[in-house]
């Protein structure tokens, strides 16, 4: 089993190793990026532009136009307006400006050139024709975001989310705007909705726990601890003992240590208020962290053991009874 990051790295290495232009490899890379949603705009605008410019006839025609759209957006992300313009002209020649997707790309080009009013006009004409075009609504929201008018963006996003409640990308966006404005409480609510949408994805639990930890306070530290443990239950390093890369869910092991430590330090918390199972969990997390470091990155052992020493909690005044318990337990 490999993670997506390792997969991307192998694509990257192959691209730099091959001397001639390997168009199959570039096509596969673009496919992979569309699936995994990584933001690698510079690579796409370099290699992808060459692919759609010189090898377009070799591509599957249906996929070719999708690739063209992908490359245009990445060129705009890198502010390479001339490249985007030439590719867009090809799309206009094929589909004419009646197509909604082409119109939206023209709007994006205006945005990139800084012609905000023209872009808004484009999106509004699309919305007049097709009032349920969610992509254009999202573009309008991101225009407000780019202008720094966050209140208006949040307002529009809220009305958008009343219609499309299942769109978890919009919830993510709303959460990230709230985090930028430091209103963690609202961001927490957004992540609750996201977790309802995707209850088996460990990443959202980690995110939720991180926000709850940032809010601070003894109760929130314990809440964060619960969510960290739940994400560990979904993606535990014990599930995949024989693999050649470190486990993907290290943040939650660090999170468990940090939230228990902060709970002990906070004014309403304290070591004596911890349950026995939580003390055991702390020991388990420290042991796991050391084991993982020994196995994958022995050169960083000093840093990790210093971290563990720094965040260690003092012994409880009453001795814990069931020390044998190894697995993390979850109190709900």
């Amino acid at each position: 089993m490999t993670t997506e990051l390792i997969e991307y790295q192998s694509y990257h290495d192959q691209l730099h190793k091959s001397r001639s232009f390997n168009w199959v490899l570039v096509r596969d890379l673009l496919r992979f990026l569309r699936k995994s949603k990584f933001r690698k705009s510079l690579i796409v605008s370099q290699y992808g532009y060459k692919l759609v410019d010189q090898y377009f006839s070799k591509l599957d025609p249906q996929e070719g136009w999708d690739l063209l759209e992908q490359v245009i957006v990445c060129c705009l992300d890198c502010n390479q307006i001339e490249k985007a313009q030439t590719l867009l002209n090809r799309l206009v020649a094929k589909f004419t400006t009646n197509s909604v997707r082409v119109k939206r790309l023209i709007g994006m080009l205006y945005e990139c050139q800084g012609l905000i009013q023209e872009a808004i006009n484009v999106y509004q004409t699309i919305l007049q024709e097709y009032p349920s075009d969610s992509m254009s609504m999202k573009r309008q929201i991101s225009i407000y975001k780019s202008q720094g008018i966050h209140n208006r963006a949040i307002q529009l996003l809220n009305t958008y989310l009343q219609i499309y409640m299942c769109d978890f990308e919009a919830w993510l966006e709303l959460a990230s705007i709230h985090i930028n404005l430091l209103s963690y409480k609202s961001a927490l609510f957004c992540y609750e909705e996201i977790i309802l949408n995707a209850p088996i994805n460990y990443l959202f639990y980690v995110k939720y726990a991180e926000i709850s930890y940032s809010l601070g306070g003894a109760d929130n530290f314990i809440l964060a601890l619960k969510y960290y443990t739940h994400s560990l239950e979904l993606n535990s390093p014990l599930d995949y003992p024989e693999q050649d890369h470190p486990p993907t869910n290290l943040p939650s092991i660090y999170g468990i240590i940090m939230s228990i430590y902060s709970f002990c330090e906070s004014s309403h918390g304290g070591v004596n208020k911890l349950k026995d199972s939580q003390v055991n969990l702390m020991e388990w997390a420290q042991k796991q962290l050391l084991d993982i470091t020994n196995q994958y990155t022995p050169d960083k052992k000093d840093i990790v053991s210093a971290f563990i020493k720094l965040t260690d909690i003092p012994k409880k005044s009453t001795t814990p009874k069931d020390v044998e318990q190894q697995q993390p337990t979850i109190e709900k």
Partner: peptide
């Protein structure tokens, strides 16, 4: 959740429909 275990934070930090072009690019 096995197939989700190989996802990383990068894939959720980026929301392609909400890209902003006024960036360091």
């Amino acid at each position: 959740s096995t197939h989700l275990a190989k996802k990383s934070f990068d894939s959720f930090a980026y929301t392609p429909n909400f890209t902003v072009f006024k960036n360091r690019g």
